[in-house]
């Protein structure tokens, strides 16, 4: 009896091992097949290649703004007036939802560069054109759900959780920037 039951246990252990390893291999195989089908929805090589844009700011007068496209999104560039710069720098960070100083956000204080997408639900805020509503803080105002941004693109009032994002960019010369 002992010998018999021992061999039975062994064969059951062997069977469990075979079943578990079969299912494991099948699972790995299924995942390997599924991955290309999922990954094809990620950005393709040509989409990733469109990652940088150069902008000439020499004709941008004080107080004017332009919107350029980068990775299919609007990027706001505004030439700020001295008063706007002063306001942006002097305001207290205490009451801000997402406290950041103007120096952290704007390396060249004359030109502010922002991703023009509201951090709430992705609408494009108003404030680029001269006639636009600029919100209570004079920067940008999102018409979708009423988020107010200041001259530094910081969220001051409304539902947006964070400040307008800053794209990675660099000044190639005094008046030319490369975004991305």
């Amino acid at each position: 009896m002992p010998k018999n039951s021992k061999s039975k246990i062994n064969s059951e252990g062997k069977r469990d091992f075979l079943i578990i390893s079969t299912y494991t291999m099948a699972g790995i195989g299924a995942a390997a097949v599924a991955w290309p089908l999922i990954d094809q929805m990620n950005p393709a090589a040509d989409t990733l290649a469109l990652a940088s844009t150069e902008v000439d700011l020499s004709s941008l007068e004080e107080g004017q703004a332009i919107t350029v496209t980068w990775r299919g999104k609007p990027v706001f560039v505004r030439h700020r007036t001295p008063e706007e710069i002063k306001l942006a720098k002097e305001v207290s960070l205490d009451d801000m939802r997402h406290p950041e100083t103007d120096e952290e956000r704007v390396p060249n204080e004359k030109f502010i560069v922002l991703v023009g997408v509201c951090t709430h639900l992705g609408c494009v805020p108003l404030g680029q054109k001269s006639g636009d509503v600029k919100g209570e803080y004079g920067g940008w105002f999102c018409p979708c759900h009423g988020s107010h941004y200041d001259h530094s693109g910081r969220i001051r009032k409304g539902p947006a959780p964070t400040n307008l994002a800053i794209p990675s960019y660099e000044f190639l010369s005094d008046n030319v920037i490369k975004i991305g």
Binding site: W35, P36, L37, D39, Q40, N42, A44, A45, D46, T47
Partner: peptide
Amino acid sequence: ERIMRDVNHGWLI
């Protein structure tokens, strides 16, 4: 051709 060259795993699919 874009599927063959640029889309992730496009050639395989």
